[in-house]
């Protein structure tokens, strides 16, 4: 059984499929996320693919400080993703609210709505930082698996 677990974990580390969701960003972070999947940066090196539906994805890339309107939808999308799943908050807004902090129509950060596994600061976060963040997330996951043993 142990070997099977090992193989599955290896496969999970090697093929993180992402889905991108705009939770009320000013759009700059979204453009950077989209830029990071262009041929110049080539996320497919790490086995990453951009998927259209939460049902196929492993990593949810959120940008923006969750507007109150969007909160229910964000939770619903999160719950539609099959386990194991990770959430990455891209941009300062997604981490802490950023310039929108304290705004009447906004929460301050993704983690007020759903659990976040990795924060990537930057206004906007550059594609390099996003790729670095996703790779670090995978490394952390690997380490946590090892610690569990």
């Amino acid at each position: 059984m142990k070997i099977v677990d090992r193989i599955v974990n290896w496969a999970r580390l090697k093929s993180p499929w992402v889905i991108h969701f705009n939770t009320g960003a000013c759009n700059a972070c979204d453009i950077e996320i989209v830029a990071s999947i262009t041929p110049t940066y080539d996320l497919e090196r790490f086995g990453s693919l951009l998927k259209g539906t939460p049902r196929h994805a492993d990593v949810l890339l959120c940008s923006g400080p969750v507007t109150r309107q969007l909160k229910d939808r964000l939770v619903r999308i999160y719950e539609q993703m099959p386990e194991p799943k990770f959430v990455v908050a891209v941009g300062t807004c997604a981490c802490s609210g950023g310039v929108f902090n304290g705004c009447y129509s906004m929460l301050s950060g993704i983690d007020e709505a759903i659990p976040v596994s990795m924060y990537i600061p930057g206004c906007p976060a550059s594609p390099d930082a996003i790729i670095d963040g996703v790779v670090k997330l995978l490394k952390e996951y690997e380490k946590s698996l090892k610690d569990k043993k």
């Binding site: 193989i7 599955v8 290896w10 496969a11 999970r12 090697k14 093929s15 041929p39 080539d42 497919e44 090196r45 086995g47 049902r55 492993d58 539609q80 099959p82 386990e83 194991p84």
Partner: peptide, 25 residues
């Protein structure tokens, strides 16, 4: 053809195994 590096050789196997190990909804 798009001037990228592209996926490593084990990619389809990793995708297949990962999908097999995921939750079924």
């Amino acid at each position: 053809m798009q001037n990228r590096v592209g996926p490593p050789w084990f990619q389809p196997v990793a995708d297949f195994i990962k999908l097999l190990g995921k939750e079924l909804i």
